[in-house]
Design a protein around this nucleic acid. Structure first.
Length: 927
RNA sequence: GCGGAUGUGGCGUAAUUGGUAGCCGCGCCAGACUUAGGAUCUGGUGUCGUGAGACGUGGGGGUUCGAGUCCCUUCAUCCGCACCA
């Protein structure tokens, strides 16, 4: 074999490792560049060919930046806490630490074969105490801070306590849980427990009774982003709503900043849009409605205060605490039955029945503050407890849900907005509501005749001046529930005294995860940590039994890479000021709202405290597409063990069966391998076409059950890492999803062999000439340099590969083996194919690594042409081309074209009506 | 229902951003060499047509000298959100 990739690749991988070629340190003399891959969770299944896609792209970019003179930070590590290892532990008894360790080793082996330029000296895993020490530290900081709306940042809780001592909480403008107003005297007279309870309502990491997504099968609560359509994302188990006392992170305090700062990020619009939806900002007003015959008031949130004259009833969430007080004795039974029914329903059922209208009258009435009408108060599940105030004023004329509800329960409908230029109509004749984002207000004494926009601002003024309520911005984003009733996660650095939580002293960190005798809840139903012996501090106070969720460890990991061995801080000032934040982040869309929003929040919090210098963690982000599987099928004739080839299958009644793609080549089945594949196929019979068994195929998700998983190890073994890297990029645009088809890889592999041959003679010995290159050769080189540089800069790696192929085809054609051409070409390809480049670089006589070569620069001089191929078209249809000198006057072009014999032929004796000449491009003759 | 993305040969894709549609590769066809091989090399390969030529970028319409690219409309597939007041 001429191009011996096996020998070459293992040799240079060894060399890079021994020479620490990819080690980086702070170097103020060079500009920094930080390239990061999304933190992998090493699963037991190992890598398939889809996983490294983004890693290869980021590696190419890292190497490119390094060749351009940047000091590139390109680290890798593992998100190692998490459910799968723990589920496995429950099934087998094997400690999750062992499972995790095995998986990581396997992962690392696979990564190492692909030749990435990671600085492995910076590697860490989140389950290592020296790492989670800083996760716990960050949690303690959140526990010790509150969010000051006036300063728009997190501030120390001591400052808040000082304010309480001085003025109580009346002047405090905080993002906090519900707290009653108190004076300084009140505060001072509170017991320690009472004070702690108040402080909890302000802390950014706080304990509260909240409705949670409880997953009985996993025995834990889950965050909103961990639940999809009523089922857990991991494992697909049903999830139900429950009220539990849980740790939460007050991410809602940062909603506005998370929203606004997105402007500064180079992320795709679709990803920003997903985050915007998740944050869900809406402007409106909070308004109090008095209860008829009582001192009570109900606070509602509306985005359409201009329609308040049309509010003919109210609806509360069934879970609302006010319901008990509002329900009159005669409705008590019905209300309680309705609430039970709603409670029993799982999230899943609730969604399935989304269109069904249910509700129950409470017996009480409220007073519409503008019409002074008595309006009935209902409860219904279409009002969510967790959004706004959990209560609405229903305006059936102008809200589709309220409309359906009113129709179902026979409640009055009053129109208060008309379409521009139209008259009011009888709502009884309507078939749907008029969801009136624009129009003119009617039936609304104070705001009649105004358009919607003006009406909103006018009515808001009135609401505020009469003390009925105030303008309010609401967010869909809820505080992140941070407790997991599981073992394999970071312990909370918290102990309990008199039922109140206290942070342990930072000097005692990390609080290490204790051993337990089983990874299951205790008999009392406590989390697994309830089994740990002596799970309490020196004073005998018990530690928290929950652990932190998966996103805890991955929220600040990009900071730790800057300074991974620092035992005195998450990241030193020096390292942070140098590396700042991630310049390029590559990963899948699956983290659009989970990790990517938690990290931003976490980073902003640390920014507020002055621990990090940038307010956003990831400047530019690229979502790589998924690599899908290409499955193959055989067709079994029903009730037989006979298999019929694809194009004959329609003559039979067949069942398609997935067949392992590894025993199929170009859709032709390896019949012997198939017989050996599984016992039931050992005596299979085949109906062939042209002596072959042709398989059917389909594009599906790459998964074990589809038998279409392709392991990168197998590809590396057969074709080499450089071929794998190049082929993954060749497949198509990085951001797009596309199927993996091993068949195409030959083309890339052949390319490398031809590339190799450029540098070698017939005896496979390096042979380059020092002769002066020709203009043609220089043109090929410089054209390629230009194209490759531009393509990498815009992350168009697939067209880059194609450009390399064209270049090698052309140089082969020219029989070029000149150093002046081949040496820059070697540096150019080093980012895509580092192994072969390193080998050739050394064969060319260099002693340093090709990683430290200089990125070649193209020179326009070599690309200059004196003529161009000009397409001549008639009525827009190209008929022939002419070689025409560049940059000559239009009149001359016209003359050349018109005197051409071909032109005369197509003119057929007619006079051209018009001749369009686009200089140096095209000529179009209009007949 | 709302929001986003995508649609080009048998397949993955390319197209200087309004200027020769199909680059590069797979596959396929033909040929050469050969120890007959799933190696290598050469040529061909969008569709229809013997041909000149006609047609052709999901469908329909429009703007333009000229549209894969811009506008309107429609269809299909994928993804995200989904009672958010």
């Amino acid at each position: 074999m001429d191009y011996n990739f096996k020998e070459i690749e293992s040799k240079w991988q060894e060399y890079w490792k021994n020479n620490k070629t990819y080690k980086v340190d702070i170097d103020p003399s060079r500009p920094k560049f930080y390239v990061l891959d999304m933190f992998p969770y090493p699963s037991g299944a190992g890598l398939h060919v889809g996983h490294p896609l983004g890693y290869i792209a980021s590696d190419i970019y890292s190497r490119f930046k390094r060749l351009q003179g940047f000091n590139v930070l390109h680290p890798m590590g593992y998100d190692a806490f998490g459910l799968p290892a723990e589920q496995y532990a429950i099934q087998t008894g094997q400690h999750p630490a062992i499972t995790t360790d095995i998986n990581i080793k396997r992962y690392r082996e696979q990564l190492d074969k692909i030749g990435f330029s990671y600085d492995w000296d910076r590697e860490f895993r989140t389950c290592d105490p020296s790492y989670y020490k800083w996760t716990q530290w960050a949690f303690i900081q959140m526990f010790k801070h509150w969010y000051n709306n006036q300063a728009q940042k997190a501030e120390p809780i001591e400052k808040l306590i000082a304010e309480f001592d001085k003025n109580g909480n009346s002047k405090v403008d905080a993002v906090c849980s519900e707290v009653k107003a108190f004076t300084a005297e009140d505060w001072k007279s509170m017991t320690e427990v009472e004070q702690q309870e108040v402080l909890l309502a302000y802390r950014l990491a706080y304990l509260a009774d909240v409705m949670v997504n409880w997953c009985p099968a996993l025995g834990t609560v889950l965050a909103n982003d961990e639940v999809k359509e009523g089922f857990s994302v991991r494992g697909g188990h049903p999830v139900e709503q429950r009220k539990m006392r849980q740790w939460c992170l007050r991410i809602s305090a940062y909603a506005e900043r998370l929203l606004n700062d997105m402007e500064t990020l180079e992320w795709t619009d679709s990803l920003k849009e997903i985050q915007r939806n998740w944050i869900g900002r809406s402007e409106g007003a909070e308004v109090y409605f008095k209860i008829d015959g009582s001192d009570m008031k109900i606070l509602i949130f509306t985005t359409r205060p201009d329609t308040i004259y049309g509010a003919t009833f109210m609806v509360l969430a069934p879970e609302s605490e006010l319901v008990d007080e509002l329900t009159t004795p005669e409705y008590a039974e019905k209300v309680s039955a309705y609430r039970d029914e709603v409670k029993r329903k799982t999230e899943r059922e609730r969604m399935a029945e989304a269109k069904k209208v249910t509700g129950q009258f409470t017996g009480s009435y409220a007073i519409n503050p503008f019409t002074n009408e008595r309006i009935p108060i209902w409860i219904s599940e279409y009002v969510l407890a967790g959004y706004g105030t959990g209560a609405i004023m229903a305006v059936p004329a102008h809200d589709s849900r309220d409309f359906v509800f009113a129709r179902t329960f026979n409640l009055p409908i009053i129109q208060t907005v008309i379409r521009p230029g139209e008259q009011a109509t009888d709502p009884n004749s309507w078939s749907e509501s008029y969801d009136s984002k624009e129009g003119v207000v009617i039936n609304s004494t104070l705001i009649n005749g105004l358009d919607v926009k003006q009406a909103i601002s006018k009515i808001n003024e009135v609401i505020e001046s009469r003390g009925l309520g105030k303008r309010k911005i609401n967010y869909r984003l809820r505080d992140a529930i941070f407790s997991r009733q599981r073992y394999w996660g970071e312990p909370f650095p918290v102990y309990y005294k008199d039922g109140m939580p206290y942070a342990i002293d930072e000097s005692k960190l990390p609080l290490e995860l204790p051993e337990v005798d089983a990874f299951l809840p205790t008999e009392k139903g406590e989390p697994p940590l309830g089994r740990a012996k002596n799970w309490k501090n020196a004073d005998g106070y018990g530690y928290e039994l929950s652990t932190m969720p998966g996103f805890a460890g991955s929220s600040a990991y990009y900071l730790r890479y800057m300074d991974p061995h620092n035992n005195n801080g998450l990241v030193s000032k020096e390292a942070n000021n140098y590396w700042e934040n991630v310049d390029l982040y590559i990963g899948g869309t699956e983290h659009a709202v989970g990790h990517l929003i938690y990290s931003r929040f976490w980073n902003k919090f640390l920014f507020d405290l002055g621990h990090v210098c940038k307010n956003e963690p990831f400047k530019k982000l690229i979502n790589q597409g998924m690599i899908q599987g290409r499955s193959n099928f055989v067709y079994r004739i029903k009730n037989t063990n006979s298999y019929v080839s694809l194009n004959l299958k329609d003559k039979h009644d067949v069942t398609p069966i997935h067949v392992d793609v590894n025993i199929v080549s170009n859709d032709i089945l390896d019949i012997d391998a198939f017989r050996k594949w599984r016992p039931e196929f050992s005596d299979a019979e085949f109906i062939l076409e042209d002596g072959k068994y042709i398989c059917g195929w389909a594009v599906e998700k790459m998964s074990k059950s589809m038998w279409n998983v392709v392991n990168p190890d197998v590809i590396v073994d057969k074709y080499g890492a450089d071929t794998l890297r190049m082929y993954e990029m060749f497949l198509g645009p990085l951001e797009q999803s596309k199927p993996w088809d091993t068949n195409g890889i030959d083309g890339v592999h052949k390319f490398f062999r031809r590339f190799w041959r450029l540098y070698h003679n017939a005896n496979n010995q390096i042979e380059v000439s020092d002769a002066e290159p020709t203009a043609q050769e220089l043109k090929v080189l410089h054209k390629t340099i230009k194209k490759i540089t531009e393509d990498i800069e815009k992350f168009s790696f697939n067209t880059g590969v194609s450009a390399f192929m064209i270049c090698v085809n052309e140089l082969t054609e020219l029989k070029c083996n000149k150093r002046a051409i081949l040496e820059p070409l070697c540096a150019l390809i080093a980012s895509y194919a580092p192994h072969i480049a390193e080998e050739l670089w050394h064969l060319l006589g260099h002693n340093n690594s090709v990683c430290d070569a200089k990125w070649p620069k193209h020179d326009e001089m070599y690309l200059q042409e004196s003529t161009y191929t000009c397409p001549v078209s008639f009525n827009g249809k190209t008929r022939f081309t002419l070689e025409i000198p560049l940059n000559i006057p239009q009149a001359e072009v016209e003359k050349i074209v018109l005197t051409d014999a071909n032109t005369q032929k197509f003119l057929e004796g007619k006079q051209p009506k018009k001749i369009i000449i686009v200089p140096n491009k095209i000529v179009n003759i209009v007949l």
